[in-house]
């Protein structure tokens, strides 16, 4: 059942299979492309600030899929039907978290290559950026899932989820982008630790949230 569910969730959210699911990645590259136009083609300036821009673009791209992540399946009665088949909400949300990250993390990492080329990010800086995104995107996915589940029963949920994600994602951004500024891969350990902590609590928090949403 879990495998079938994962395959179905991936079909919903993976770029180019689901409806409009490629948007976050396109958005991510678009931001990286716009930035040199805005600040000018000074390679030094771009290399110095580009890493931060990539991080901000990743954070904003993480907001885009939230609207459809949970609310749609609640309205569809999808989680109700799974619950009747004896699946716990926590398991549904753990699968959803994995599918959400797979459909947004790895494509973003691949898109980092063209984005970094546009922003003149090279050498060690690029390695730190890529490692940082690898460590940070699971955390972003976990925050996104929790927020999507919490706001699923609210009418203005979609608009609210973007606002909620930004402050919660700050620690990841600070350590992730900070590692770039100081050329210090060690603080990526903090990014990984934050991500792991978030991954551990997200299925439970999101599971409790959709249980509560069902009651009204």
């Amino acid at each position: 059942m879990i495998l079938a569910l994962l395959r179905r969730d991936l079909g919903q959210f993976f770029p180019f299979t689901g409806s409009g699911a490629a948007l976050p990645v396109v958005f991510f590259v678009a931001v990286a492309m716009l930035f040199p136009f805005a600040v000018g083609p000074d390679a030094n300036l771009l290399a110095k600030t580009g890493g931060g821009v990539v991080w901000i673009a990743a954070l904003l791209a993480a907001i885009l899929p939230l609207e459809k992540l949970v609310a749609r399946d609640i309205a569809l009665g999808f989680f109700d039907q799974l619950k009747l088949r004896g699946l716990a909400e926590e398991a549904m949300m753990a699968v959803r978290l994995l599918a959400h990250w797979l459909s947004f993390g790895p494509p973003l990492l691949i898109a980092t290559f063209p984005a970094a080329a546009l922003l003149k990010i090279e050498g060690e800086t690029f390695d730190i950026l890529l490692l940082g995104l690898l460590a940070g995107t699971p955390g972003l996915a976990a925050i996104g899932l929790m927020i999507a589940a919490l706001t699923a029963s609210l009418r203005a949920g979609a608009a609210l989820s973007g606002l909620l994600l930004i402050p919660l994602a700050l620690p990841i951004l600070i350590f992730g982008a900070g590692a770039l500024a100081r050329q210090d891969p060690v603080s990526l350990g903090f990014v990984g630790a934050i991500s792991l902590g978030l991954l551990a609590i997200a299925p439970f928090a999101a599971g409790a949230a959709i249980r509560a949403a069902r009651e009204n």
């Binding site: 059942m1 079938a4 569910l5 179905r8 079909g11 919903q12 689901g18 409806s19 309205a75 569809l76 009665g77 999808f78 109700d80 039907q81 799974l82 009747l84 088949r85």
Partner: peptide
């Protein structure tokens, strides 16, 4: 087994595939 006004079938999928998911589950 519950049948209510919410079908649990993916609106974007062709009916055959939407049903196939539940058959598999």
């Amino acid at each position: 087994g519950l049948l209510d006004e919410r079908t649990g079938l993916d609106p974007d999928l062709p009916l055959g595939r939407a049903l196939a998911f539940w058959e598999q589950v």
